[in-house]
Write a protein that binds this DNA or RNA. Sequence first.
DNA 1: CAATTCATGTAAGGTGTTACATGATTAC
DNA 2: GTAATCATGTAACACCTTACATGAATTG
Lengths: 189, 189
Amino acid sequence: MAKQNTTAYIILGLLEHEDLSGYDIKKKIDLMISHFWEVGYGQIYPTLKRLEESGQIVKKPGETHKGPERNLYSITETGKEALTGWLKIPEIKDHTRNEILLKLFFGKMLTPEENRERIVQYRQKHLENQKTMRFYKQNLQKVLSEDEDHLYYYLTVLFGEKVYEAYLSWADEATELLAAGGLSEDAEQ
Amino acid sequence: MAKQNTTAYIILGLLEHEDLSGYDIKKKIDLMISHFWEVGYGQIYPTLKRLEESGQIVKKPGETHKGPERNLYSITETGKEALTGWLKIPEIKDHTRNEILLKLFFGKMLTPEENRERIVQYRQKHLENQKTMRFYKQNLQKVLSEDEDHLYYYLTVLFGEKVYEAYLSWADEATELLAAGGLSEDAEQ
DNA sequence: CAATTCATGTAAGGTGTTACATGATTAC
DNA sequence: GTAATCATGTAACACCTTACATGAATTG
């Protein structure tokens, strides 16, 4: 079962909403999905090819609105079935991969100041993320009733807000603990 | 820079503390690290081989305490330098990969009940995780002063506690929103 | 005596990242 | 005219997962 191929389902999910080009897909992912799943061009274009070959999407070439050549893709019935099939199965695996915790776990090898600095940077980054989530949340709240999709987008944004809040709260507590730890060490010497 | 090779640094980090076998390393990771970074045997054994070839660790074969043959590994000076080098550079990439949010993002294709059920399962799982973190936290608090390492382990556990708490809080709010959304839909029909 | 745990490893294949390559159009 | 954005793609690798293979020792 090494063929989860999540990228394919993200593409199918986006195409189920509207026809898009590879470039569009990348933009949509960056804007709406990248906070919980990042995808690069190096995955998108080959996956589009495979999805087309297996009849889950169709290419409408030459749909040039202006500018450079542009391939628009549409989802097929087969594609929709594959998508709902994937959506129905419960997600099993955790894809947790948190590099800062890994580096902190081995924090003894660095000075408390180095570790604290790392957490300060982390806080900074996620303060920005939290702001973004709040902005999205406000905008979505206004249009919640317009489309059923919006409720589900809202749920993901709410998740982001709560999690980034937890990151900030942790960062504050952690920097305090490190400051105290550093002090008690100084006191010992 | 496609060679981050995080697994190697996890192994080096663990060996910096004590000599271990591949099997020991797997157990340690499962126990203390897997909540934020999972590693399988298929990564551990080949990585040990590469680390040995590049002189970052050394094998002490035949250190059989009893039972089957057992290879104990120790970190070398080269290995320690590589480890601190990695620890010092700021972590850049997010490895965020949240499958439930992905499936919820496309939730319109399922019924509100199916989506709610997914969140209920998620809550259940992370309630367990939160309990585990609280258990670890209590145990670590007792031995905080015994070893400087414990403070850093504590920071990762604190992170886990806060994040799982955020998951639970989100799950509660999300199920309520879905119940409300489901109701208003019924009302419309 | 059966199941579980200890212990090490390989092979195959899927997934993901980075760098490269190309060229048109748009905004300043 | 220069920089940024639009737009598509490939190649090389690195990384990760799964399944397979083996066998000793311990526990019930």
